[in-house]
Nucleic acid binder design. Structure first.
Lengths: 347, 347
DNA sequence: GTGAAAGCGCTAACAG
DNA sequence: CTGTTAGCGCTTTCAC
């Protein structure tokens, strides 16, 4: 299990370390003969440079900016901060500087502004949630031409292939919700797919989840379920939902495609529809309370903490150890009930 | 965001790098005065040595042995190999040598033998599944007195506190199974907790799961479920199970505490009890098939791949970057159904 | 007690 | 085109 060094190879090839280095990095200025000789050796030995030595040389402080919606406006984003802090802690001995910047989730202007701030900081990489697709493509190009690496998490810029992404397969997560709903609701009943849409940014999110949910039910044999779609905003939720429930009989479940399942439960509990099953997304404290009380049957966890932690780790390990940044990392679709909840909160 | 080096500190304190080093590592031979001066600076600056530089010096090849039951005997262990290979790949550029050794899960002798082989190899650390508790304590002491770091995964040596562990909270996983069962079976029905015990090594495993399962049902209000325990070995499973089902009416679900849920389903499918719900453990290919066919409702995933990968990573990062090895890492209790299955297989 | 110096593996600058 | 050299931050050895 001998590890070969550049020096070993130089000796074996009868050349100097400098020449070997030039071959490794294809810097040219090497004779055909020497090039071939060294290259052959490198392959035989399956040489990998020592990443420690390499980055020791390179005593640069890498700056990574994380751009995400303000967690004070929507607590869904809070765990992201925890993920960032975990990464900070993990890499505290290394030369990395992680900065966090927020924008307002319902203002494209604020999105622009924040990203311009980031551009001014000239970081080495930026990890962002591209909530607004058009604006994101614009800003992505600006970053690229400034030589800044762009990674995304949670939301994907659908049109741009080249940008790395950490997040969840939303279509599939809709299917997971459907499967769970199928197991806990009676046959011949109706299910509401409820989009609580405050800001209209989540449109594509919600559509993918709905598609997955509906496709699941379409595919089951002898399907006697009916799925109904309800699009509301938070303000008229109560009237709209109650009306909807009154208008349709045999409604046994509601699948909430955003993290606002607790809003739905709040309303159900004051009504005659207490027994309608609810499945929603995300471990917000309000949702957790209802999960523990069995007012929410399941939550699908999008692992926001893991998303940021992983996104940052990929970038840092790229800088420090020359690792490749995966193009797409789809996280598991996590099913949470009242009993396995705690095992996701501690981590 | 300046990173201070040993040289900076030496200059600031008006001493040499050597003295600073002696203070950092408490090697003594430093005057009271110099010691205090340097120490004060170190604290003010919150100095952390550059782990790259440190381990660059230390050009030692670390050897880690992984000891686990033979995956050819029980395919539950197969993913562990994948986890090991992932770690190998990840750290291929570093100076680590990972060796894998198997033992036979139903022979304490083979366990001893394998561990003696490992002792002879004089590794820096060993990651093992302590299937047999008495023998494990013995061997753990041998390793310790040989100065070999011991970590465990999947099974825990209950009596030894000092050994690090990566795995699952089995009591809680029993509760998770119970909660799921509760949601998919009708009231006033009976549930079988089925231990399929070939080798009697899993006794403590199974007991913890059973305890969790039963406790859950005890705690629910107006409990009208009955839980029944069935202990069988694989050979008499068929007769025992069918007899049991015939003797008791209203059985609606079976919770299988080992990875052999597929054995139960095989039997149910040839019987009049096709509609009995089954919940089991582990993503064996046989279980996966039945999960996809809805013959198994849920599987609880113990993440064997993650267990080994994490266990090895902790050890390597300890050696390379001086990170602390967590005393206990309890992995999430993963609920798997036919729809989120794929998101756990790829990872 | 202390400082100076060599060297870990790699890169980059500089002579030749 | 090629070899030599200095130096990244830290540890270790050796002389004073």
């Amino acid at each position: 299990m001998k590890k070969y060094t550049i020096k070993d190879i130089a000796e074996l090839a009868g050349v100097s370390k400098g020449t070997v280095d030039r071959v490794i990095h294809k810097r040219g200025k090497v004779s055909q003969k020497a090039f071939e000789k060294v290259n052959k050796l490198l392959e035989e030995i399956d040489y990998h440079p020592n990443p420690m030595a390499r980055s020791l040389k390179n005593n640069k402080v890498y700056m990574i900016c994380v751009v995400l919606p303000n967690p004070e406006e929507d607590s869904f984003w809070e765990p992201c901060i925890a993920g960032i802090n975990q990464a900070k802690e993990e890499f505290k001995s290394f030369l990395v500087d992680i900065k966090v910047l927020h924008y307002s989730a319902n203002s494209t202007e604020s999105f622009h502004e924040t990203n311009n701030k980031v551009l001014a900081l000239k970081p080495d990489a930026v990890l962002l949630t591209p909530l607004f697709s058009k604006e994101s493509i614009l800003i992505e190009n600006k970053y690229k031409s400034a030589g800044i690496i762009v990674s995304t998490f949670n939301n994907r810029i659908d049109l741009v292939q080249s940008v790395s992404f950490v997040g969840q397969d939303l279509y599939q997560s809709g299917r997971v919700g459907a499967k769970l709903m199928h197991m806990i609701t009676p046959e011949k009943s109706k299910i509401i797919i409820c989009h609580i849409d405050e800001t209209f940014n989540n449109a594509s999110h919600m559509q993918k989840k709905e598609k997955g949910f509906k496709d699941y039910f379409k595919e089951i044999e002898n399907n006697d379920y009916t799925t109904l779609t309800l699009i509301v905003n938070k303000d008229n939720l109560k009237t709209a939902l109650i009306n909807f429930l009154n208008e349709h009989d045999r409604i046994s479940g509601i699948f909430v495609t955003t993290s606002k399942a607790y809003n739905v439960v709040d309303i159900l509990q004051d009504s005659e529809y207490k027994n309608v099953k609810v499945i929603g997304y995300d471990l917000l404290s309000e949702n957790i309370n209802f999960l523990k009380q069995n007012a929410i049957s399941f939550l699908i966890h999008q692992s926001p903490k893991t998303q940021t932690h992983l996104g940052i780790s990929y970038l840092i390990e790229h800088f420090l150890f020359n690792k490749e940044i995966p193009n797409e990392k789809l996280l598991p679709i996590v099913i949470v009930n009242a009993e396995n909840l705690s095992t996701y909160l501690e981590h």
